[in-house]
Amino acid sequence: MKEFNYLRADTLSEALEMLEEFQGNVKVLAAGTDLVVRLKGDMVKEENILDISRIKELKGIFTENGIIHILPLTTHTEILEYPDMKTAAQILYDACKSVGSPQIRNRGTLGGNVANASPAGDTIPALFVQEAKLKLKSKSGERVISVEDFFTGPGRTVLKPDELLVDIYFPAMSDDEVGFFKKLGQRNALAISVVSVAAKLKKSTEPNKFDKAFVAFGSVAPTVIRGNRVENALMDSVVDSREKIRYIAQLAWREVSPISDVRASLKYRQDMSINLLYEGLLELYKNGWNRRS
């Protein structure tokens, strides 16, 4: 393992100061569940590590005007234990539950999972369909972007060298919204997703119809991706049969561009994008498009 400089910021302004000073030659450490593994494998090119894990201003969850704010250093366990998260952010809740193991959920943070920008990041498809926004801050200012616009490739984001992710927020789910997060791994815990699918549907007043649909796929493209064709089909159809759901789910084939690796083949990932979406939609359909109890 290479040697590196370890820096620690105790406040946000200190962190932003240091980011500006090191101009990109610095890797931010939130909890280290991924970074430490990469450090051990000499896969980090930056010579400085900036530990932000003790910045209190970046921890916590609050709701304001129906918007749920999850600050980036909030752990997956804290999200799971937050009151009402299971109903107000059911999809993200399910995604957090599928992360690693209790130890990793106790340590790993939502901001870390997002900024790490893995196409297999479990919470990212959920944040896509929950319509999350990210606030990025630097010494010179701040900006807000949609989570979808954040990722540029595996491990790559639009974060500028002096910027830090400081807030993740999205509207609480309303009663007429349903959804799911599904993850296929090689086992039931401590698994990196082979394919993951998240979806959120806003029900219309007409049965089996939807005013809005959000679908996102993980591990099947260089970044997590939205499934616009599937969404359009869900909004334009009367989704009233198993056959129709199957037909819509098959559109996923047009959305994904997976690769083969040691975990799964390209073809299997393609088929699983369809089948996980199909299974998720079918379960909701069989439940009368109601949330499961």
Partner: peptide, 26 residues
């Protein structure tokens, strides 16, 4: 699930991230 994959003499599954053993949840 368990298989150490070797392709052309090179190991493809060298740790527990890719060499999959059951957990208590399995």
């Amino acid at each position: 699930m368990e298989d150490v994959k070797i392709e052309k003499g090179i190991f493809k599954t060298v740790n527990f991230s890719t060499y999959i053993i059951p957990t208590v949840k399995d």
